[in-house]
Design a protein around this nucleic acid. Sequence first.
DNA 1: TCCATTGTTCGAATATTATCGAACAACTGA
DNA 2: TCAGTTGTTCGATAATATTCGAACAATGGA
Lengths: 101, 101
Amino acid sequence: MRPFKHPHPDDFVLERVLYALSDPVRLEIVRHLAQVAEASCGELDGGRPKSSMSHHFRVLRDSGLVCTYGVGTTHMNSLRRADLESRFPGLLQAILDNTDA
Amino acid sequence: MRPFKHPHPDDFVLERVLYALSDPVRLEIVRHLAQVAEASCGELDGGRPKSSMSHHFRVLRDSGLVCTYGVGTTHMNSLRRADLESRFPGLLQAILDNTDA
DNA sequence: TCCATTGTTCGAATATTATCGAACAACTGA
DNA sequence: TCAGTTGTTCGATAATATTCGAACAATGGA
């Protein structure tokens, strides 16, 4: 299992991060990851097809929001909090703070 | 000139706001408005066709980011800072703080 | 009233995304 | 080595967005 490519914080693009978070499915993933610190893809699909989820994880990875690494047959995902904070201070927190109401 | 409809802060949707800001043209508009407090559509197009800009302003209005009102033959736009701050505290500031590098 | 200015709306073409089944790849355990 | 589990990749389809010219609407001034 070859590791995924994750962008360096210097290469994060604000527009891409915002776009990645503008999808309800992906925002839900990020919110979940903010609470558990780490979760497999399977734990994060809401009964959705794996191919769909794989797409969303890729968008999250490419934007710099999420880090994915293989552990056995599963892929573990985590939020890149520190990297995001260093590049876009306060952004992630402001988004996570919103409990939608 | 009938006034545009602007959503109430209670009806702001985080995903929509993030999506509106994920477009470079719209983000540029918002950044500009953050500095001048008020500007006409004409001041904000970068030589782009008016019909294109009109579309972007509508997205910004519908998401709650921008308020547009008619003054004579021109339309003035302003950032809905207070409304955004009340609904998504810190979000706009975190985005505006990023000077992209 | 006639005209120039400022934007909106309409319609169509193009581009991007989302979704999901099917096939494939990596790993583990028996 | 074989089977089961977990995800990825591929390919196609459907849905959404972007872009922009052309026609239209509202305003203000000459």
